[in-house]
């Protein structure tokens, strides 16, 4: 009985530590997801072009009702903000589709936003040069996604209503 109680105590301690780590703002880091995004909550700016100099941001969605955050790439075009996934099968993509209310942490500041997936091919073509130049160091005059040849997704991000 005593051993069982000690074991239970250790399990509870581990769960407590895991929760502290999860919510403690230690993640996300690299490919590892995290939980709640801590930081000063700010009003969204009208112009997001300052993110051109920021390689990665953190996105918080909900997983089974709990905060779940990942590190992602970000693009701006005409001052508007977009999130992109090279592969649409990312966990966060499904979560944002299911619940568009997201939180973003950009340079330590948190913005409460709403993300909507876009299937607009013209928008995809407009963002392709941004993606190539910002992340791959390839400048193009124009670029178009070949239908059926890519599996990416783009989300337009707006302030919550």
């Amino acid at each position: 009985m005593g051993r069982a109680l000690r074991f239970l105590r250790w399990v509870l301690l581990l769960v407590l530590v895991a929760l502290v780590v999860w919510f403690g703002g230690l993640g996300p880091y690299g490919f590892a997801p995290g939980g709640y995004l801590w930081g000063e909550v700010r009003e969204p700016p009208a112009d997001w072009s300052f993110t051109d100099a920021i390689p990665e941001i953190q996105l918080e969605t909900r997983l089974f009702g709990l905060p779940y955050s990942v590190t992602i790439w970000v693009m701006s075009q005409g001052g508007r903000l977009f999130l992109g996934a090279i592969e649409c099968d990312r966990v966060w993509v499904d979560q944002v589709k299911a619940d568009p209310e997201i939180r973003l942490r950009v340079d330590g500041r948190v913005y409460e936003m709403r993300a909507e997936i876009s299937t607009d091919r013209a928008l995809g073509a407009a963002l392709a040069p941004v993606l190539l130049h910002k992340y791959l160091g390839i400048a193009v005059d124009s670029a178009n996604w070949i239908p059926g040849e890519n599996t990416g997704c783009v989300f337009r991000v707006r302030p919550r209503a």
């Binding site: 051109d52 910002k134 160091g137 070949i146 599996t151």
Partner: peptide, 20 residues
């Protein structure tokens, strides 16, 4: 899966400093 025109290597663009 992208068709492009005028693709050129530009690893240090002024608009995107250090994001590559």
């Amino acid at each position: 899966g992208m068709e492009s025109e005028g693709a050129r290597w530009d690893p240090l663009p002024d608009r995107y400093p250090g994001t590559q």
